[in-house]
Simulated scan of single mutants.
Amino acid sequence: MVNKRDLPQKICPTCNRPFFWRKKWRLSWNTVVYCGEKCRRNKKNERCNSLV
């Protein structure tokens, strides 16, 4: 069994939280940007939050 801390991680640009590699992303990990569906839908707010 692999420890979670040994898995690759990225920072979500919307919520600024780290998220770890998931098995369902094994073929597309390089293209994954957001930690989940909610952040992907709210990506417009990312630009607004950076302007404030």
Rank of each mutant, 00 (worst) to 15 (best):
R22P: 11
S28W: 02
D6T: 02
R41Q: 00
N45D: 06
T31M: 07
N42C: 05
V2T: 00
C48V: 13
K44H: 12
R41Y: 03
K4D: 09
C12F: 05
V33I: 03
S50M: 12
K43A: 01
R40D: 08
F20G: 03
G36F: 10
K4M: 13
N3Q: 13
W29I: 04
P18A: 11
R17I: 01
T14Q: 13
G36I: 04
R22H: 10
M1Q: 10
C12E: 02
S28Q: 12
F19H: 02
E46K: 12
C39G: 01
T31A: 02
D6Y: 09
E37I: 08
K43R: 14
T14W: 07
V32C: 10
K44M: 12
K10C: 03
K4N: 12
R17D: 00
N42H: 03
N49F: 05
L27F: 15
L27D: 13
P18F: 10
W21H: 00
P18M: 00
K4T: 13
N3P: 03
W29P: 06
L51D: 15
K24G: 01
S50H: 11
L51F: 11
P13C: 05
F20E: 05
K23V: 15
K23S: 13
N45T: 00
R26K: 13
R22T: 08
N30T: 06
N3L: 14
T31V: 07
C15P: 09
F19L: 07
R22F: 08
C15F: 04
K44C: 14
F20T: 02
R5E: 13
W29K: 00
R5F: 14
T14N: 14
P8E: 08
V33Q: 08
T14R: 12
V33C: 00
